[in-house]
Structure formats: structure tokens, C-alpha cells
Write a protein that binds this DNA or RNA. Sequence first.
DNA 1: GTCTATACGGAGATAGAC
DNA 2: GTCTATCTCCGTATAGAC
Lengths: 184, 184
Amino acid sequence: MADDLFYQKGFENTSFTDIADTAGIARGNFYYYFKSKDDILAAVLSKRSENIRELLSEWEKEYPEPAERLKNYALMLVKSQSTIENFGCPLGAMCLELNKLRHALQDDASGMLELFREWLSKQFSALGHEADASKLAMHMLGRCQGISLITSAYNDLDYLNREVDALQEWIDTLSPGYKQRPGQ
Amino acid sequence: MADDLFYQKGFENTSFTDIADTAGIARGNFYYYFKSKDDILAAVLSKRSENIRELLSEWEKEYPEPAERLKNYALMLVKSQSTIENFGCPLGAMCLELNKLRHALQDDASGMLELFREWLSKQFSALGHEADASKLAMHMLGRCQGISLITSAYNDLDYLNREVDALQEWIDTLSPGYKQRPGQ
DNA sequence: GTCTATACGGAGATAGAC
DNA sequence: GTCTATCTCCGTATAGAC
């Protein structure tokens, strides 16, 4: 699928030949289904968004507690650590590349981040942080993006696991039962 | 200079025509100075490393205290917020792109991150965290990379300033005079 | 040293046979 | 619907005039 190639090689650096070879069909045949390369990108982004929506609704079924949901999001980094080590975060890399290309679909890419942000925000609200739920969500997005990038730059999975642990603890800190320090 | 173009457009997406136009010289004339495009990249990476070394030694002169030095590193994000908003962090983006290209010079790119990591690590050691200075340094690198990426994806400078403030507070937390909470 | 002209390959895209 | 052949454009790189 083109999605994997865009993730592994980047959008611009993936050619029709690459996609056709992977899919096992002829180059020219692509134009029967897509009218341009950007059209393929649009389809990929749309499919990814759909996958994200499905993933989030699955998580909601599987984990009833907001704190568990948040921790599960962080845990996603650990689960996909081998691909992150090689290619970074698929969302972050896509946003960055389309941004630099000043591509028309760059908002579609950041829209995928937005799906996560909204969902995370809801969980933080449910934890009792209605006032700054969105800020906490963005903080968490940023932490995860940073972890992904450094992990791929250094090929350091110890770092990734360490940082995810720290994130989990941070979430505990924000949970209702957490013992606050005096004067705060 | 080619450096700016690589930063703003990415390496692969920058053509000789782009560089020649910016430099105001003829395309073909480049091969008098560089034997290939990769050769230009090598020169750019080398120059960047040199700049980083200079920057770090300047900071050491300007700020005697390790905590101030660390804070100044975080403050760099604020100072260059307009370019970060548009193009992300030059180091992080370069590492990510060369990584995906499986480029021979990808280690040179992560070597630039390593310069910062070593320097940050020294400052954390001086703050009294010899045992996990390197881990704290990587944590800080990751935080900054995440901030850069999210800032560019969302074009949100409020987020950037908020997160840099949080980083500064985190550094205070690690400083010798900081009042610890009981039981820790 | 700096330019123009050009080679050569690979990219995206199209036409038309089957 | 799927293929092959081909077009055009632009990329890096080279040759050679000045």
C-alpha cells in the first residue's frame, strides 16, 4: 500500500514506480484509479483519518477510565517502537514534509493530529481538567512527537521506554486520587 | 546559502536551480566547488556543526550558571519562533529526512544533535545530576523537538511559549535550591 | 574561474492496443 | 480494466567555450 511507502520513504521520495512495484501492477494503470499523485496522497490521508477514528473508538470500548485511555495512547509508542525507530512518527513526519512542500493538503495532515488532540482533550476533561484540557492534550502530543523524533535520530529504544514511563507518571500526577504537594 | 534552502524546503526538494538562483551564479558552476549534491550537503552539515560549537561556547561565556545556560537553550526556541513556525527545527527535520532517505550522511545530522546533548549533559552534571545527566539531556532534546514539530504543524506560537515556560520551570525543579516536596 | 550547452536518467502523466 | 509505449519536464551532472 502507498501509505506504508509514504511513511517509510516520505511522500516526495516515493515514486510511481515504487508504488506500482509494491502493488504488483503497471505504472500507467494508476491513472485509472487516481488522477494524480496528489490524488493518491489525498486517499492515503483520508484512509489514515478513518483508521485513527476507528482506533480511538476501539480504545474507548476497551478502556473505560480516562487515565487508562491516556496511558494507552502513550503506550502506542512502545507498541510501534520498531517502526518509530526507523521512520519516526507517521503523522509528525507527514505534517513536517507537507509543511515544507507548502502542499495544498498540509491541513489534512495536521487534521489527523487534531483528531488525537480532540480525543485526548476529552479524556483530560473527564479527569477534571476542563479548563486546560486542550493545553494538556497539546502538551502530550508534543511530548510524543519529541520522543518519536529523538528515538529515530538516535535509534535508542531505551530512551523511548524511559520517556513513555515518565509520561505515564505524569498522567498519574493529573489523576484525581494523586496526592498533591502542599501549597498547590 | 544552501543551508537556508535545505532548512526551508528540505534537502531532496531543493534543486541546483534553486541554489544557483539564490546564490546568483550559474548551475554548472557549482561543480567547480563541489563534486556532487551530497558534497554540498556535507559542507552544509559541517558548517552547521561549526556554528553550533561557536554558539555553545558563546553561551558558556555569557551565562556562568548551568541553570541559566539550560534555560537559554530552551529560550532559543522562542527567539527563532517565526522560522520554527514555518519550517520546524532545522536539526530535527534534517535528521528525519536523511533517516528516511537512508542517506550516508544521516549520522552527521544526528551528530549535530549529539553536540547539544553533550553540552546539555555537562550542564545537568554541574547542577548536581551527574548520574542521569545524559538522560535529562535527551529528555530536554526530545521536549524541544516535540515543541518545534507541534508549533509548525499547528502554527501556534502560544503553545510554543507556554511549553518553553514549562521547560524553564522544570529546570528550576532540578536546581539545587528548589524546595522538594516531602517524601521525595 | 565562470559561463552556456547539453547529456542522461527518472519523474509524473497520457494515449491507445488488447 | 490492465497493459505497453511514449511524451514532456526537470533533476543531477558533464563538456567545453570564453
